[in-house]
Amino acid sequence: MKLFVTGVGTEVGKTVCSAILTKYFKADYWKPVQSGDLGFADTMKIKSWVGDEAICHPETYRLQLAASPHQSAAEEGILINLNDFKLPETQSNLIIEGAGGLMVPLSDEEFIIDLIEKLNLPVALVVRNYLGCINHTLLSLMILKQKNIKLEYLILNGNFPKDTERIICKNIQQKTKILKIPDLEKITKDNIESITKQLEKIENA
């Protein structure tokens, strides 16, 4: 199983959800592009939250500026090339975490969704409740459908008004599975472990 984790925008909890999925599926983790925060990059967060047993593959691009990858790369005189991205070789399940949302540019011509297409992966779409999340979610669902990319999981990260949840869930692809992740006051290894166990109980019910 290989799964690409993306979001309806930035700061919606992709890394937390990736940690939970990595733990749940006993998977390896790979962040193809890290833009900024190199001192505590997402790969380092996964190690911290999942544990030292988590196998994390090195990023293809590590960029200094905390900005869109195309801008971060330009600051360093780099042009991100889709052909540089190769799936890590592993016999394990693999969770791949994108940068921001589907239309985040990697270059002037190519976007995160193009990377998903190139790698030929199904998607887990992370949604968090905020004013505008319905619009952003439905636009994300629309482009996934247009590109014929399978939406394996819709992840509702945190609490949602019932009317918001209803309109989002009625627009997902037919076989998409819905995961609900509770709000976390503090992200710790123990909390990640607890949520993973809750998911296992739901799957086995």
Rank of each mutant, 00 (worst) to 15 (best):
Q64A: 15
G101E: 07
K23S: 14
S35W: 06
N157P: 09
E193L: 09
L144K: 00
F85G: 05
Y24H: 14
T188I: 04
V8M: 07
G13Q: 07
K118A: 09
L38F: 07
T137N: 01
I95M: 10
K47D: 09
K150R: 12
I80T: 04
G98Y: 05
P105T: 08
V33W: 02
A19F: 00
N204V: 12
Y29E: 03
I202M: 12
D183S: 14
V12M: 10
S35A: 12
E165N: 04
I195N: 02
Y61L: 10
L87K: 13
L38S: 05
G101I: 01
E110I: 04
T164M: 04
I20A: 00
N83P: 00
I20P: 01
G101T: 01
I195G: 03
E59L: 10
S72F: 03
K45P: 00
E76V: 05
G132K: 04
Q198A: 14
L131A: 05
K162I: 15
G36P: 04
A54Y: 07
G77E: 02
V50E: 08
E110H: 15
E76A: 14
A205Y: 14
L184N: 10
I80E: 03
G132H: 03
A124C: 11
N204Q: 13
Q71M: 13
P69L: 06
H70P: 04
